[in-house]
């Protein structure tokens, strides 16, 4: 039993957070979000460092590391609210690697792993994906059916129309198959790829929660009302404590999901549902609390909290919201209990 990162993982985490702290400042995030653009320079740099392929096997041009390393990077990207399409590329690669044919893997994985190709992951119904993150500029879009099937749609065959979601730190699009365009099905079962993707999205939300907490703690120590820092009021301190509670709980669940993906895939369905349920609910509550504890300043555009709040809103529903995943936890737990009593 050792529920902590290895030294290598701690090193990756520290390096990733340091890099993003200097490259993805609020000034840069704001600039790109307001311009409706992605941070191309940062994306290129992260691609050069191998981030999109961290969990892709070495034979496909990736780093060959695990889901724990994968969530370390996605958490750091969430914490920085980085305006890069890296998650889309990494999630698309998960599906190609875990559910694609050898031909599909050979065709797409090396490019996705190096970041030279861009990917996106979304859901669609009746041939339309209404709100697909990172789809603008993607070379390949993975679209999930409601029944578990998944399709690969190369950009050349797709119609990708940008949509302004409330979160401009990512570029969203409405995706459908263009006239005369083709769709390739992913040949294997997609459930394990989807579970991994849920854990990855949860990790980004944990990062968002952590940033909301850190900004709030810094603020309530400084901001004075009635002659004292507002952090000395229990009404404020207890709400901040609840933010830590929600953040750390979601972190425990997300690390469990990542560990299960690497070491015990029998527990991955439960781990992924737990991660997504806890991190989605936590992302919503912590970013809302951050705005509340900043008072009027928190409601302004320039306070930058709204980027976190907006990202949490979109990520919380992406691949299923808290209620969807609680229902899965309930069903999996009932299955286990009934099996044990038989």
């Amino acid at each position: 039993m050792n529920f902590d990162f290895t030294e290598d993982q701690q090193e990756i985490r520290a390096t990733a957070r340091d890099l993003l702290a200097s490259r993805s400042t609020w000034e840069r995030v704001r600039g790109h979000a307001e311009a409706g653009a992605q941070d191309e320079a940062l994306y290129t740099e992260l691609g050069g460092l191998g981030w999109p392929g961290i969990a892709v096997a070495e034979e496909h041009g990736g780093q060959g590391l695990g889901m724990v390393e994968f969530v370390i990077l996605l958490e750091a990207l969430g914490e920085a609210c980085a305006a890069v399409p890296l998650r889309g590329t990494a999630l698309a690669a998960l599906f190609v690697e875990h559910a694609g044919s050898p031909g599909q893997q050979a065709q797409w994985l090396p490019g996705l792993a190096s970041g030279e190709l861009r990917g996106a992951l979304g859901t669609w119904a009746d041939g339309v994906g209404e709100l697909v993150p990172d789809a603008v500029g993607a070379d390949i879009v993975v679209l999930l059916d409601t029944d578990g099937g998944a399709s690969l749609v190369p950009a050349a065959d797709a119609s990708i129309e940008p949509v302004a979601s409330i979160d401009p730190t990512r570029r969203y699009a409405r995706v459908s198959v263009a006239e005369g365009g083709g769709v390739e099905l992913l040949t294997s079962d997609t459930s394990e790829a989807l579970r991994r993707a849920e854990v990855g999205v949860a990790a980004g939300l944990v990062g968002v929660s952590q940033r909301a907490l850190d900004m709030t703690v810094a603020f309530v120590k400084e901001r004075k009302q009635f002659g004292v820092p507002i952090g000395s009021f229990q009404a404020v301190g207890h709400k901040a404590a609840q933010m830590l509670f929600d953040t750390e709980g979601a972190r425990s669940a997300t690390l469990f999901g990542a560990w299960a993906a690497d070491a015990d895939t029998d527990q991955l369905p439960l781990g992924a549902a737990m991660a997504k349920a806890a991190a989605s609910a936590g992302g919503r509550t912590t970013t809302a609390a951050a705005i509340q504890l900043h008072g009027g300043i928190g409601f302004t555009w320039e306070a930058d909290l709204h980027w976190l709040y907006k990202r949490a809103q979109l990520d919380a529903v992406f691949l299923g919201g808290p209620a969807t995943h609680r229902a899965r936890i309930s069903a999996l737990s009932a299955e286990r209990v009934v099996a044990a009593t038989r």
Binding site: L213, V217, V220, K221, V228, P229, G231, S232, F233, Q234, V236, G237, H238, A240, A241, Q242, L244, F245
Partner: peptide, 14 residues
């Protein structure tokens, strides 16, 4: 919660 606020988050004494 007071302990978390003061000792973990480092907020001023409540």
């Amino acid at each position: 919660k007071n302990i978390v606020a003061e000792r973990v988050l480092g907020l001023p004494k409540a």
